[in-house]
Design a protein around this nucleic acid. Structure first.
Lengths: 176, 176
DNA sequence: AACAACATGTAATATGTTACATGATTGA
DNA sequence: TCAATCATGTAACATATTACATGTTGTT
């Protein structure tokens, strides 16, 4: 079995019972800076995991809320994934890709592009630092997420510093 | 028109005539740390760009080598993309995603996971620093790529430092 | 009563990967 | 002559996004 989303869902359902809606929100909020997924991808994936016996429904709530949790087979599969399968190293960042093409734009637009990125990143940095300060990280899953959050903080900080390094160099793209 | 790869190809063909093979190699080598693409995606995309009049064949070489370059419409389209369309902010990093699930593994395997990542990143850092030192960045497109490379260097360095921050904290995931 | 948030799904389309398929040229 | 690299493509499959579709519950 492969599929990153599939295993991420399995891992989240190994922690505690959650609904598709809960999972969607986790991707929107905490997991978003590492992986993204929409509800339209999550619900069919849950159905497949259920049919494969890797998760089972363990409760229901108001509206059509369905709570799932990982079965023993599911837990075993997550551990297998984490230990036996190499994480895919593919990195995609459209903003950095566009940086390669900055020379196609006039100076003012190049600046505007990087400044907009800087603003976005600075805003996220604030947000993540606020999370680190105010949230409670006491259980093992929360401490894990604290480690991931630290990556987010360092990433955004690095990004902002990189823009500050790049901005004064944009003028050079006009020489010759 | 949308599609990141499509516009990346267009931008690369706005610089100078290139073949599908050349473009594939650029993704394998320089562009790889910002966006990835395989030849099986590139060739059909080139055909579509050609049919849309955004690129045209300007030459041929040994074997079936076909050289393309952006037309005026193609150049206009790249600039429109760079200025009018917001870059997609989706970020995907499987290694960081897995960090959220580190608590599912025994201490030694958690350590092994992060150490393997550290080694990978340190190797890339060396590689990028070597590129920065030895390559020539004199034309506007090369200077742009130097700015993107700087991101790669800072990213890998940040990653290594983050692992060094995280490793001593892994033991805490066993408490309680 | 109205609105926001909760809650789950499907359909159509777009994007991306892996495997298949073929052949030419260059250098050792 | 052999192997590596150059060179282009297609097919099947997997993953991901956008739009469509529907209904409930809690709050103001």
């Amino acid at each position: 079995m492969n599929g990153v989303l599939r295993h991420a869902l399995l891992a989240l359902l190994a922690e505690e019972p959650r609904s598709g809606y809960d999972l969607t929100q986790m991707f929107d909020r905490t997991l978003g800076h590492a992986w993204s997924a929409r509800h339209s991808q999550i619900y069919p994936e849950l159905a497949r995991l259920r049919d494969a016996g890797l998760i089972r429904q363990v409760g229901a709530g108001p509206r059509d809320r369905k709570l799932y949790e990982a079965t023993d087979e599911g837990r075993a599969e997550v551990r297998r994934w984490l230990t036996d399968e190499e994480p895919d190293q593919t990195f995609r960042n459209e903003a950095i890709l566009r940086t390669f093409f900055l020379w196609l734009l006039p100076l003012e637009e190049r600046r505007a592009f990087l400044k907009a990125e800087r603003a976005r990143r600075a805003r996220l940095l604030d947000e993540y630092e606020e999370m680190a300060k105010t949230r409670v990280f006491e259980t093992a899953p929360r401490l894990s997420s604290r480690i991931a959050l630290e990556f987010g903080i360092r990433y955004e900080r690095m990004f902002v510093e990189w823009v500050d390094w790049a901005l004064p160099r944009l003028r050079e793209l006009d020489r010759d």
